[in-house]
Design a protein around this nucleic acid. Sequence first.
DNA 1: CGTTCGTTTGAAAAATTTCAATGCTAGTGG
DNA 2: CCACTAGCATTGAAATTTTTCAAACGAACG
Lengths: 247, 247
Amino acid sequence: MTSASDIHAMTMLIRKLESIATLSDEERQAILSLPAKTRVLQPGQDIARDGDTPSQCCLLLDGWAYRYKILGEGRKQIFSFHIPGDIPDLQSLHIHTMDHSLGTLTQAMVALIPHEAMRELTTRYPGIAAAFWRDTLVDAAIFREWMVGMGRKSAFGRIAHLFCEMYLKLEAVGLAGEHRCRLPITQIDLGDALGLSNVHVNRVLQEMRGKGLITLRSNTLVIEAWDDLIRAGEFDPTYLHLQKRAA
Amino acid sequence: MTSASDIHAMTMLIRKLESIATLSDEERQAILSLPAKTRVLQPGQDIARDGDTPSQCCLLLDGWAYRYKILGEGRKQIFSFHIPGDIPDLQSLHIHTMDHSLGTLTQAMVALIPHEAMRELTTRYPGIAAAFWRDTLVDAAIFREWMVGMGRKSAFGRIAHLFCEMYLKLEAVGLAGEHRCRLPITQIDLGDALGLSNVHVNRVLQEMRGKGLITLRSNTLVIEAWDDLIRAGEFDPTYLHLQKRAA
DNA sequence: CGTTCGTTTGAAAAATTTCAATGCTAGTGG
DNA sequence: CCACTAGCATTGAAATTTTTCAAACGAACG
C-alpha cells in the first residue's frame, strides 16, 4: 500500500497534523503506512451525502472541498471550506450517519482511507488519536467563530473575517503567501456560507474593493490591507490553534 | 476519591455517555474510579474564561451552564447551553487555550476532573476515548445546526428549533417529559444565542404563544404542539445522534 | 456563436434592530 | 409586611440592514 501517490498523500496528512499538533517518529511512520486509494474528482461532485454511512475517510490532497446542507426552497448552508491536508469527514469515524454533505468546489484529488485502518491506528497510537481528535476540535472552534459572525457581525465584518481565516489556513500548509491566495468560491457560495444573499455579498465586495482592502478577480484573492481587514473582521487567529503562528 | 458525591458524579457521566455511545463493564468501572472534586457555583459565575489554559474538565452535575464569547460594544454570542451530564469544556483536554468562556446560568454543582486523569483514562481505554471524542463531535454537529438556523432560518424558525433541541437533550438524560421542561434562559440569552435582539425575541415568543405552540413562564417551557413546533423549526433530531431516539 | 453560470445593478419590500419608555416580579433591607 | 431595587419582559415608533425580484451584463466553454 505504498505507491508513490500514497506516500505523497500521507506526507500531506502529516504536514497538516503537525500544523496543529506534535508527532513522534514512530507516529509519523505509522501514518505513512496507512492504506489509501487515490481518486480524482470533478468540481461539484459529492464525496458523501447527508444521510450516508461512510466506511472511509477522505483526505484532500489537491483542490478544494466544502461541507454543506440543503434545506427546502433553494436554501443552502455551507459549514466549512476545505483545502489540501484536511480530512473534512474525519467525524464520520465516530458519527456513523452523515448529518450534512461533503462535496468538491474544484477538481480535486483525494485519498480514501478505510475507517477500519483509522480505528486500528488510533487505538494503537493514542497520540495520533489525540492529534486527530484535536483536528476535529479545531474544526468545531472554527464553527463557533462562524457563529459569532452570523450572529453578531455585519455582512462586511463576516466577509472580512472569512478572508483572513482562509488566508491563514492556506498559509499554514504552504499554499499562500504575500497576502495572496487562490479562492475558488463564488459570491453565491460566500452568501451560503455567511448567511447572506448573493446580491448583498456582491455589494459588500464592491465596498471592500472601494476601500482598498482587497482585490478579488478570477478566483484570486489579494489582501491589500491586512491590518484594516483584520480590524474590519474583528479577526483574532487564536481560534485556529495553529502551532506556528503565521499572522 | 470515591466519596458519595463523586460516585454520583461519575454515574451521571456514564449515563450521558451511554446516551450517545456504548460502554463495556470494564470501561464503566474505569470511569467510576476517576478522581473528582465537587463544587457548588452561583448563577452567572464563570468556570473558565476566554484565554485561560485550564488543567481540569468540568462535569456538570446539576444546574445549567453555557458557553459564550464577548465581543466589543456589548455584543455577545452564546454557543451552547449545557445540562447535567455534559462536560462543556471537554475540548480543553486537547485545545489548551480557551477561545471562549464557560459560565453558569443557574446555581450549579460541578465535578472537576484533572486533565491528567482524563488523559490516562483515554490513553488506556481507546473505547472511552472514542466515546468522549464522539461527544465533542456531537457538540460540533449541534454548532452546525445552529449555523443553519442563523444563516438560513427566520427568527421564528430558530427559536422553535432551539426549543425542540433543548427538550430532546433534557429528555435524553431524564430531565424532561410530557413536552415540559425547565428552561432557565432569559429572552436576552435567547437573542445572544440565536443572533437576534431581545426585543425581537420577545415579539416572536408572543407570536408563538398566540399560535398555541408553546407556553413559557417562570423558566418553564411547555410545548403545546410538538408537531407544529418541529415543522416551524424544520427540526430533524438526527444531528443529535442519540442512541435511543426520543422524538 | 449560443449557453450557462456567475456577477452586477436598481428599486421595492421585508425582516430585524435600535431607541426609549413602561411594566412586572422576585428578592432585600428596613 | 412594605417600599425599593434590579433584572427581565413588553410596547411603540422609527431607522437600518438585508432580502427579494427582475433584468442586464460578462466571461468561459463546447
